[in-house]
Amino acid sequence: MRKQDDLKQELEELSPLLHKLKAQENPFKTPEGYFAALPDELITRLRTEAQPVSAPVRPTWTDRLLEFLESLMQPRLAVGLATVAILVVSALLWLRPETGSETTASEQLAMLSDLSAEEVNDYVTENIETFEEEELMVAVAESGIEVEQTLPAIDLDSKAIEEYMEEAIQEMDEEDLETLF
């Protein structure tokens, strides 16, 4: 701070009384150790107040993925999805170009062995939304397939889900993640 050298002179000229009073000691006091403790008190306050008070926590993409996978593991939905998957495969067979004679469901299933898993996967992925649920239900009824026998038992605990999730994440690239979320 630049000191005002002529303050003394200014006061002497303006008010000798105030000039005289100025020599008295500062009458205001502080609690003992106040200034020494202040920095720590302030830093603590800054750290505390820096934390969000009650901002809603937005689920991370891993939370959402875990939630999605857990929902798949719900017995009712899992069976439903598995059933749909089987029906979709059956429907896929119907949609293939016919060779002339009609095929039975068991013949159609036998034809699955001619398809690579990749082919099936691609087709189902691309056309899942075009399948009518009712058609699929009829297809599975005609197929005579016991859903529970054809599906692996789904009994994953949370650890298994986490492991699966980690594997799935490892295989994903950035584009997959962006598409998913």
């Binding site: 009073l21 008295q24 009458p27 205001f28 006091k29 502080t30 609690p31």
Partner: peptide, 9 residues
């Protein structure tokens, strides 16, 4: 308690 001045002050 934290003021220790005289009457003039």
């Amino acid at each position: 308690a934290y003021f220790d001045g005289n009457e003039v002050q």
